[in-house]
Design a protein around this nucleic acid. Structure first.
Length: 404
RNA sequence: GUAGGCGUAGUUCAGUUGGUAGAGCACCUGUUUGUGGCACAGGUUGUCGCGGGUUCGAGCCCCGUCGCCUACCCCA
């Protein structure tokens, strides 16, 4: 027997229904916010992610499905969605249309070669949005509001955490301050953090080691080192969240794992799904377009993890729907197809090809959750009629084929 | 890469100090010769993950291996 690869899952029945429910809900809401669908390839040049996500990140460093294709190209399966959308945005020269705004939504599979666990698969699915050309913090707020709408529509509770990661003006000096601070208490920090001091000092902030965290209480906070512009934007965001009654926590240690974020960073967290608790995350990435050789364009975006959200959504109860149609004798079966196609114009129809006793048909109708069980028996066949029972109202009638 | 837990029927799981497997659910049949869900009665279903070893005898003990899960790490 051949099984699916490690960390890759098949979705069927009520699981796949839940998946579709989440995606259609998210699509419906993002359309209301003016987003349009964008589809980009799953396979991209490895270079794209090395430059955008960052070589220092674990995603690029050790988690990419990367290989050489038959043409000798260094390619990989996308580990996240933003880079491809930005690449496409630049390739279509939308970055030249400087006064226009573009909003895209996407969804699809992402691949990371990690050790699978709860809420973490090697092939997983994200729904995401990217907004280009809008520098205002109002857009950051709007995106957060939109995610809130999606979770509300799905009936999911969450904790919103926000932070500002600064910009090229205030980030580098802060970074140096932090390095100085960390170097002083180097001996007491964990092994990983010591490595991070040189590779990616900002990541030390969200180390889960308790000892590191206690040392960090006195560390310089980026939130207190922001330049006037970043500080003003962050205060404005907080004000908007308050006035619109969106509850939040400022988490000065919230860092995005991907290098391209600046200014607003946020994460939606659930405490009901194990340790992989981030159900959505995103922020502003004003420098990424330029970084990938486009004309400087401000942008904000987010992605939500569909599998993680699947753990949280309750599906509305399914009710009986449509018709089950069967016959009791072979000759009746042949008459079923025109009846079925008649009904399919308006209803869901399940056809049973095997002649069976009435009782078996009623059971069959039950099994497929049909509302009506329609059977052509011996008597009905002679008179060109069909017996129909409403399985909820428990009423039955015999009607002409032409009136079915 | 590291650590812990688990692999027995379609499924959820039991299986005592080693004596060649059991329950619920599901499924099929009947009670009801043309009336579903409910009830009752009966019935079907297994390479006990795989490969070695110990033993008269292994689902159980030992070694190896594969897979799944959870956590670290990372992140959606």
């Amino acid at each position: 027997m051949i099984n699916a690869l490690r960390g890759m899952k098949d979705l069927t029945f009520e699981e796949s229904e839940r998946f579709v429910h989440i995606v259609t809900t998210a699509i419906g809401i993002s359309k209301k916010y003016g987003y349009n669908y964008i589809e980009t390839p799953i396979l991209e040049e490895s270079k794209l992610f090395k430059r955008s996500v960052g070589e220092s990140s674990d995603i690029v460093g050790k988690e990419m499905y990367q290989f050489e294709d038959k043409g000798g190209n260094d390619v990989c399966m996308r580990p996240e969605g933003t880079a491809g959308v930005v690449r496409s945005f630049i390739q279509a020269k939308l970055d030249r249309r400087q006064n226009e705004k573009f909003k895209f939504y996407y969804y699809g599979p992402m691949f990371r070669y990690e050790r699978p666990q709860k809420g973490r698969l090697r092939e997983f699915h994200q729904f995401g949005c990217e907004s280009f050309g809008e520098a205002s913090v109002y857009e950051d707020f709007t995106i957060i509001q939109m995610i809130g709408d999606i979770f509300k529509a799905l009936g999911i509770g969450y904790d919103l955490q926000i932070n500002s990661l600064g910009c090229p003006t205030c980030m580098p000096p802060y970074r140096q301050n932090l390095i100085n601070f960390l170097t002083e208490c180097q001996d007491e920090l964990c092994e990983d953090c010591n490595r991070r001091i040189t590779t990616n000092p900002i990541r030390v902030l969200d180390c889960k080691n308790e000892k590191c965290q206690s040392l960090l209480t006195n560390s310089p906070k980026l939130i207190n080192s922001l330049c006037d512009s970043c500080d003003g934007d962050f205060k404005k965001l907080v004000k908007l969240l308050k006035s619109e009654n969106i509850s939040y926590h400022i988490d000065s240690n919230l860092v995005r794992g991907l290098d391209y974020y600046s200014k607003t960073a946020f994460e939606f967290v659930s405490n009901n799904i194990g340790s992989q608790s981030a159900i959505a995350g995103g922020g502003r990435y004003d420098k990424l377009v330029e970084f990938l050789d486009g004309k400087s364009t401000p942008a904000v975006g987010f992605a939500l993890g569909i599998e993680r959200i699947m753990e949280l959504v309750q599906m509305p109860e399914i009710s009986r729907e449509g018709y089950y149609i069967g016959a009791m004798k072979q000759e009746g079966v042949d008459a079923l197809f025109s009846l079925a196609s008649q009904k399919r114009a308006t209803d869901k129809v399940t056809l049973e090809y095997a002649p069976k006793k009435l009782k078996a048909h009623l059971k069959g109708a039950d099994r497929v959750n049909a509302r009506y069980c329609a059977v052509v028996g011996e008597d009905e066949f002679k008179e060109q009629k069909v017996w129909v029972k409403d399985l909820i109202q428990k009423q039955e009638s015999v009607i002409n084929w032409s009136d079915f």
